[in-house]
Design a protein around this nucleic acid. Structure first.
Length: 221
DNA sequence: CTTGTCAAACGGGAAT
DNA sequence: ATTCCCGTTTGACAAG
């Protein structure tokens, strides 16, 4: 998981744009709260953004019943700089947003949206990777499960005769005729009158054997 | 031309 | 009140 920097407010953006001095300037709108009211499709003056559809004049003429939004394609340089600052910090405070927007000749809202979408892409990528990892894990667990099932079958096949079971109380072998298999938990159960004061659970006399316990009246465990 | 993919942008709700 | 996140819409573009 990517760990985001904990204090984005400390971030000092050090982006150098050819033709621009790096940034002691900051416009007075420090709150940065008017940006929400800006028309995101309004072109800032002197912009060199690449608008792929129509022109500014087209947009202005089409006003009235909700003009169709026009879509900006960011230039390679803009994308590169945005990526660069994203690498430094996945979130921007209003000041950084303002500075970056000025550098890129975009509106702060556009920078904000770009970062939101970029975070979403990152998260999606991570989710996909986690999904792949879980798939592989599931596959290996399935394999392991199959192997264990086969092992159980092999061990069951080894049980050619009834096992020798010892009473936990008398330590004497129990008669094989008194043993049955519990259908629910698949454990060997004794029907002998091996009444002890406590549990009658003991070990069978072969390895990897199920637990023995006295049969309950309900024949379940 | 149709279809699929990518990314910008939108709108609403949650968090602070 | 503002910002962020999330789901969705929309436009551009490429491939078939």
């Amino acid at each position: 998981m990517a760990v985001l920097p904990t204090n984005p407010s400390c971030l000092e953006l050090t982006i150098s744009v050819p033709g621009l001095t790096s940034s002691p300037y900051l416009p007075s709108s420090e709150g940065g709260c008017m940006m929400r009211d800006l028309d995101i499709n309004q072109i800032p003056s002197g912009t060199e953004e690449e608008w792929t559809n129509g022109s500014i004049e087209d947009e202005e003429e089409s006003g009235g019943g909700g003009p169709p939004r026009k879509k900006l394609r960011l230039s390679k340089e803009q994308s590169r700089l945005l990526e660069e600052s994203f690498r430094q910090n996945h979130t921007l405070n209003p000041k950084e947003k303002e500075v970056l927007a000025l550098h890129l000749k975009l509106r702060p809202r556009q920078v904000e949206v770009w970062f939101q979408n970029r975070r979403a892409r990152t998260k999606l990528k991570q989710t996909e990777m986690e999904c792949e990892y879980l798939k592989r894990w599931f596959g290996s667990l399935t394999e392991q499960n199959k192997r264990l099932q086969r092992e159980v079958e092999e061990l069951r096949a080894l049980k050619v005769g009834p096992p020798t079971v010892f009473s936990p109380h008398s330590c004497e072998p129990l008669p094989a005729s008194t043993l049955t298999m519990c259908p629910r938990c698949e454990r060997v159960t004794s029907t002998a009158l091996d009444k002890g004061p406590t549990s009658t659970t003991t070990r069978l006399s072969f390895s990897k054997a199920p637990l023995l316990h006295s049969r309950q009246p309900s024949a379940t465990c």
